[in-house]
Design a protein around this nucleic acid. Structure first.
Lengths: 111, 111
DNA sequence: CCGTATCCGATAGGATACTG
DNA sequence: CAGTATCCTATCGGATACGG
């Protein structure tokens, strides 16, 4: 009904975009460890959904051992840029004391 | 777990903030008509949740006939400001053809 | 007009175990 | 390491009816 908003207006989706924007490409388990409280099932579904909508790209780096990287697409980067003010607001609202930080200004680009 | 993100990273919450930001204070049925597809139950719960977190304020205008206005709080306005780039991105991503527009640059302020 | 109550289906999402 | 399979719960959210 509301297009892409149905996809991104959810906690895990936003956090995945934020983390990939902050830190560049990440493997499944790297994301799994950073996203406190997520289950592998939920992470898997979210990654699939975001990839389906071309916001991130699944890159197979090697097959033995299996090694995969999830990276923001060009469109994902645009989304991430437009997300920055919101992430800053969230960060301030939650108090910077929190153990997680949704935004780093010196994010890596286009790895 | 993720604080305020759990509250706002949802479609209806973002749309309510966006609409109140675009058009100023709104009554229940006004919101109900603008939010295509929402049910009164869901709208009610979302308004309660946003009010609970002080992002909007429920103002009783008159009691007979009952007349209520939902308005962004100061904090809600800050959120709305930080949401603008995202709403623009969403709008572009969905194509401006859509019958709904999440953002108006000439939004009313502080009614 | 402003909601709440009830009912119900869909799905998001956690826990855990397991495979290539 | 990168997931998938199962199972189960909780919450989201639509439809409808109703009360203040």
């Amino acid at each position: 009904m509301y297009g892409i908003l149905d996809v991104i207006a959810r906690k895990w989706a936003l956090l995945i975009i934020a983390i990939l924007g902050n830190e560049g490409c990440k493997g499944f388990n790297e994301l799994y460890k950073e996203l406190k409280g997520i289950s592998p099932r939920t992470l898997s579904k979210n990654l699939k959904e975001l990839a389906k909508h071309k916001l991130l790209i699944r890159k197979i780096v090697s097959s033995n051992p299996p090694r995969v990287k999830y990276c923001l697409s060009d469109d994902g980067w645009k989304l991430r840029e437009s997300l920055i003010p919101l992430l800053i607001w969230v960060s301030e609202r939650n108090g910077h004391s929190a153990e997680w930080c949704p935004i780093k200004m010196k994010a890596k680009h286009k790895i």
